[in-house]
Simulated scan of single mutants.
Amino acid sequence: MFETHVDATYAWLGLAVVSVATAGVAATLPASPPPDASGVAHTVETVATGEYPATAEHGIAADRLRLTPRSVSLAGDGGRARVSLRGARITPIVPGEGSGARDRRLRRVLDGVPPDAVFDDPDALAAAARRARAADHGWRAAPERLTVRRIHYGGVHVTLVG
C-alpha cells in the first residue's frame, strides 16, 4: 500500500530540477526595461531639424548618459540603449563645464541666455560649438531632464543638448 513507484521518484526529481532552473533564469532577468533612448532621440531630432529656434525638455529615467554629436546613449538597471541621430549634428553640453573645450558660455545659452549677450559674434559661437563637439563624450551621471535648444546667431545654427 505504501510502495514507492520508481517512475514517480524520477518525475518528482525532474520537476524539482526544472523548477530550480526556471527560478535561476527568472532571477537573471532585469528588474526594469532598458532606458528610453529613442524617446530622447526623437525630442532632440525634432528640435535639431526644425527651421526655427526652439527649446524642448525630455525627462530621463536612467542612471548614466552619453551624448555625442551623432548619438544618444542611456544606461540604467534595465541595461543600455543607444540611438543614432539622423538629423543635424548636436553640440553636447556636459555638466561641470570649465575652460578649454568645455565652454561655460554654451551652458548659459542652453539655459536661456540669448547668444548675442554671451558671444561677441557668430564666429565665436561657431568656434565654441566646434570645441564642444570635439571634446570627450564619455558616460556621465544622467540628469532628471535633458534640455535641447536650437539657436540662430547670424548665419550660425547650433543645437545645444545638455
Rank of each mutant, 00 (worst) to 15 (best):
L125Y: 09
R70A: 02
A124H: 12
T91D: 01
R130M: 00
P143A: 11
P143T: 10
T147V: 14
R107G: 10
D136F: 09
S71F: 01
A135V: 04
A129D: 02
A127G: 04
R108T: 12
V113C: 03
P95R: 13
L67P: 05
G78R: 03
H137V: 05
L110F: 06
S71Y: 00
I90F: 03
A88S: 13
G138R: 15
R130A: 13
A75H: 11
P95L: 04
R86F: 02
D121A: 13
G78I: 06
D116E: 15
R149N: 04
D77A: 15
R149G: 01
P143R: 13
G96P: 01
R82C: 01
P114S: 11
V109A: 06
S84Y: 07
R105M: 06
R102K: 00
V83H: 06
G79K: 10
P92G: 08
R107W: 05
P115I: 10
R150P: 07
G87A: 12
I93R: 09
R80D: 10
A134D: 14
F119S: 05
A128S: 15
P122N: 11
L67S: 09
A141Y: 04
D77K: 11
A124G: 08
P92D: 06
P92H: 09
L67Q: 11
R80V: 11
R145Y: 11
G87M: 07
S73N: 06
R149W: 00
R86T: 12
S71D: 06
L146I: 14
A75T: 13
R80L: 11
W139P: 00
A128F: 10
R104C: 00
R107A: 14
F119N: 08
A135F: 01
R80S: 12
A117P: 01
G100Y: 08
R82W: 02
D121H: 14
P95Q: 07
A132T: 09
P122E: 10
R104S: 07
V109Y: 03
V118Q: 07
A129E: 10
R86Y: 04
R130E: 13
T147I: 12
R130Y: 05
P95N: 02
A129K: 10
G112N: 14
F119W: 08
R130P: 00
V109L: 06
R108Y: 05
P95I: 03
V148L: 06
R150S: 12
D121L: 02
A75R: 15
R133K: 10
R145S: 13
A81W: 04
D120Q: 15
W139L: 10
I90G: 03
D123Y: 14
A135Y: 01
P143F: 11
A88R: 14
A81G: 05
R108G: 03
E144I: 05
R130C: 00
D116Y: 15
S71C: 07
R149L: 03
L146E: 12
R133E: 02
L67G: 09
G100M: 04
